[in-house]
Amino acid sequence: MVTDSPEILRYAAFADDPAGGNPAGVVLDASALAEADMQRIAAEVDYAETAFITGERDGARVVRYFSPVAEVPFCGHATVATAVAIAEREGVGTIRFATPVGEVVIETSEADGAVRGAFTSVATDTAPIAEPVLQAVLDLIGLGRDALDERYAPLLSYAGNWHPVIVLRDAAAFDAFTFDPAAARALLDEQGWPATITVLRRLPDAAAEVDGATAPDRADRGLRFEARNIFPVGRITEDPATGAAAAAVGGYLRAIGAVTPPERVVIEQGRHVGRPGELVVDIPEHGGIVVSGRAVPIG
């Protein structure tokens, strides 16, 4: 039992607007909190995750992440939000977090009065999705195999959490699919997936006609996706901007040969829940994936 309530900060990650992106709770000094206290606070904050800095180990700040219902191994948007909160108080630079999945390094920078955070995930991995499990995911969202984009094979992808990743071909199907939150939670728990089910759609390439030829008109060479991340916790059913899933997507695209590293991919997310945001994903030839974005205080 704690006698003093810690200061709880609230930030919107991967957005310039407090009404966009993914809200995260941040407790910069949770050294006096027991695990039960952190879980209670996360439930009271009622965001997808709240991050707690519980101390320091070998020069890295020890961070734990809690959803309203359970501790999760890693959370990208809360990592960015926490790093930005620290940078606003201590100045920008390199921050090291000791997380349950390993050390995560975050680079913070400032431009035009806004602070940006870029974290490098742990090493990525992929694994097949068993056919019955893939069918269960498709049944959950009410779609058949013909809805999948044949360019992108469904896989499990890891960048701190395991995420099933599927890519849909049709924009209308992507926008219209619905799911039962209780069934989604049961599937996540049954498979031991601690975070989101990631559903993507490849957006049209950003190309412009120049003298009869096409040329990219964006720095990311047009490689953009939109994501919907199924994550029923508390009042939340769909996550607005998921940094850990974005890192997993980067590892997934590299593993299937869909990109030629070094490559930059931009992921739009949150439109379907009224909190649009953007995640920038830099994919090196080897190692962790770099996910970056801004974070702004809420309220």
Rank of each mutant, 00 (worst) to 15 (best):
D16T: 11
D16H: 06
D16F: 12
D17V: 11
P18M: 11
P18T: 08
A19E: 08
G20P: 01
G21A: 10
G21T: 07
G21S: 07
N22I: 11
N22S: 12
G25R: 11
G25T: 11
V26L: 00
V26N: 02
V27A: 06
L28W: 08
D29I: 00
S31C: 09
A32E: 03
A32Q: 08
L33P: 02
L33A: 13
E35H: 09
E35Q: 12
A36S: 14
A36Y: 05
A36K: 13
A36L: 07
D37P: 04
D37Y: 10
D37C: 07
M38G: 00
Q39W: 01
Q39D: 03
A42H: 09
A42G: 12
A42P: 06
A43F: 14
A43H: 13
A43Q: 13
V45S: 09
V45W: 09
V45I: 14
V45T: 14
Y47N: 08
Y47M: 08
A48T: 10
A48M: 08
E49Q: 06
A51T: 08
F52L: 11
F52R: 11
F52M: 11
I53Y: 04
I53E: 09
I53L: 15
T54R: 12
T54I: 13
G55K: 12
E56V: 14
E56W: 08
E56K: 05
E56N: 06
R57K: 14
D58V: 10
D58P: 04
D58C: 06
G59S: 07
A60Y: 08
A60R: 14
R61W: 15
V62G: 05
V62R: 13
V63R: 07
R64E: 13
R64Y: 06
Y65L: 07
Y65T: 02
Y65F: 15
F66Y: 14
F66S: 10
F66P: 03
S67H: 01
S67I: 04
P68V: 15
V69N: 09
V69H: 05
E71R: 03
V72P: 00
P73F: 03
P73W: 01
P73R: 03
F74C: 07
F74W: 05
C75H: 03
C75W: 03
C75F: 05
G76P: 04
A78G: 01
T79M: 10
V80K: 01
T82R: 00
T82S: 11
T82G: 01
A83W: 05
V84K: 02
